[in-house]
C-alpha cells in the first residue's frame, strides 16, 4: 500500500532556471499539498497534463527527491525515515529511463539483482521465470546497445521485477514506445495487479487508463483536482469520452 499525506515539493529556481521557465519567481511549487492512497491489488492512475507534477510525485515516492513537507508510507515503511528499506519494496520504471548499452541483457539484470541483494538461488529462479515469461532467453547475451526497442523494454521490465517488489511505480512507462512494445508493459501492469501488488502509474494516454485503472487521481499545477475510484469518475462524466472529460476538467480548473 502507498499512503501519501499532505505532500509538497518546492524547487528553488536558480537564475539559469528562472531564464528557462521565463519567470522572476525564486521558487516553484511543483507539488502542492497532495494526499492519496494506493491499495494493494489495485491500480492507481495519476493523470495530468505535462508539467502537472506527476514525475515529481513519482520521484518522491521512489526516494529520488526529498519532499519539502508531507509524509509517504510504502508497505508500512516511512519513506522519509527509512528510505533504504522503502527502496527494497519498490520497483521503478519510467519511459525515459535508459539501460547500459555496453552490458548484455543478462549482465544488466544480474547487476540490479545484486544491488537489491537478491541471493544467487533466488536470482536463478526469478530470472528463469521472467526470461521465459518475456521471451528473453534468445537474446540474453546480446549487448543492449544492439537490441531493438522491444527487446530493451523487456529487459527493463525484467530489471524492475527481479527483486519481486511489493509496490511498483510506473512513470509514463509507455512514452515513446510503439503499440507492440507498449503492450508488454500494459500486460505487466495487469499481471502485477493480479498478483496482489500495489501499482501506481502516471500517464496521459487515456486508452491505457481506461484499460487498467481502478482508482484515479487527476493532478493539475501540483494540486489534486480529482481523487476517487475510476468507476465513480466514469459515472460522473458529462462528456462522451475520457479524453474530453479530462480536458473539460482541466479547463474548468483553469477558469476557477
Amino acid at each position: 500500500m502507498i499512503k501519501v499525506q499532505n505532500l509538497s515539493k518546492e524547487f528553488v529556481l536558480t537564475r539559469k532556471l528562472q531564464k528557462e521557465f521565463q519567470t522572476n519567481n525564486k521558487k516553484n511549487i511543483a507539488v502542492d499539498d497532495v494526499s492519496f492512497t494506493c491499495h494493494k491489488g489495485r491500480i492507481f492512475s495519476l493523470l495530468g497534463p505535462n508539467g502537472a507534477g506527476k514525475t515529481t510525485i513519482m520521484r518522491m515516492l521512489s526516494t529520488l527527491v526529498q519532499p519539502t513537507s508531507g509524509e509517504i508510507e510504502i508497505s508500512g515503511i516511512n519513506v522519509l525515515k527509512e528510505p533504504r528499506e522503502a527502496r527494497k519494496k519498490i520497483g521503478f520504471l519510467t519511459g525515459s529511463s535508459g539501460l547500459y548499452a555496453r552490458l548484455s541483457g543478462l549482465e544488466l539484470v544480474k547487476y540490479f539483482a545484486d544491488l537489491y541483494e537478491v541471493s544467487p538461488q533466488l536470482f536463478e529462479v526469478r530470472k528463469e521465470k521472467l526470461f521465459t515469461l518475456l521471451g528473453i532467453h534468445e537474446f540474453q547475451h546480446q549487448r543492449i546497445g544492439k537490441m531493438s526497442t522491444g527487446m530493451k523494454q523487456k529487459i527493463s521490465l525484467c530489471r524492475t521485477m527481479i527483486h519481486d517488489p511489493e509496490v511498483i511505480v510506473f512513470d509514463e512507462p509507455t512514452s515513446g514506445l510503439d503499440v507492440i512494445a507498449a503492450e508488454s508493459i500494459i500486460q505487466l501492469i495487469s499481471d502485477c495487479k493480479n498478483s496482489g501488488k500495489t501499482v501506481i502509474f502516471s500517464s496521459h494516454i487515456m486508452s491505457e487508463v481506461d484499460l487498467l485503472c481502478d482508482d484515479l487521481a487527476i493532478i493539475h499545477k501540483g494540486k489534486i483536482i480529482y481523487n476517487d475510484s475510476f468507476e465513480q469518475f466514469k459515472s460522473q462524466m458529462t462528456t462522451e469520452s475520457l479524453t474530453k472529460e479530462f480536458i473539460h476538467l482541466i479547463h474548468q480548473q483553469e477558469l476557477s
Binding site: 521512489s62 527502496r87 529511463s97 535508459g98 547500459y100 544491488l115 537489491y116
Partner: peptide, 14 residues
Amino acid sequence: ERGTLETLLTTPVL
C-alpha cells in the same frame, strides 16, 4: 543523459 542514473538511485544502495 542516458537516464540510467535515476534507475540506479532507486535501488537500496546508498
